[in-house]
Write a protein that binds this DNA or RNA. Sequence first.
DNA 1: TAGTTATTTAGGCAAATGTCTAATTATTAA
DNA 2: TTAATAATTAGACATTTGCCTAAATAACTA
Lengths: 87, 87
Amino acid sequence: MNDLFKALNDPTRRQILELLKEKDLMAGEIAAHFDISKPSISHHLDLLKRADLVIGIRQGQFISYSLNMSVFEEVIQWLMQFKEIKP
Amino acid sequence: MNDLFKALNDPTRRQILELLKEKDLMAGEIAAHFDISKPSISHHLDLLKRADLVIGIRQGQFISYSLNMSVFEEVIQWLMQFKEIKP
DNA sequence: TAGTTATTTAGGCAAATGTCTAATTATTAA
DNA sequence: TTAATAATTAGACATTTGCCTAAATAACTA
């Protein structure tokens, strides 16, 4: 849960997730959307990977990133507990 | 959304939310649950307030904190977008 | 009013975070 | 095998974060 919220706590990383929602992208394609150096984007992708929010698969020279939907459910469930009625 | 994820990105603050889920508490009661100084807890409560996740109401000498449920929905909705089917 | 209790604000410090450039690794192509 | 391209890793630096102690504010009580 800690890694998850840490990964989500950055506007660039959240935007990367929104890009990947539309379609899978190569690391370079992702970087092209931002005014940030490629190494920095690579670092953001690393954090997203550690949190299991995205998966990177090498395709030859490139690495294709995609969302790992299932982990979002975990965060949603954690948040849902607060919607229950108080005793 | 930024303030929200920032506020959620800390284990102490998440635990405070879980405590308040059970029942409203005074600042001092919250602090008593942690091995952290009262000023630090006060600072955590301030971040939670800024994110609108909690509300603090003075009751005489004390300040009673309670969850502001409605804001959780906002985060849940943001996360839900990733569960939709890809085109 | 003076003293006590509850809480926050201020200021300082170490650790974590986000960014950059330079160097490295992996893969393809000539 | 050498050169070129894609991406990551390494190291440095400024900013942010979380914690502390000391001081300030707010409200009750004798």
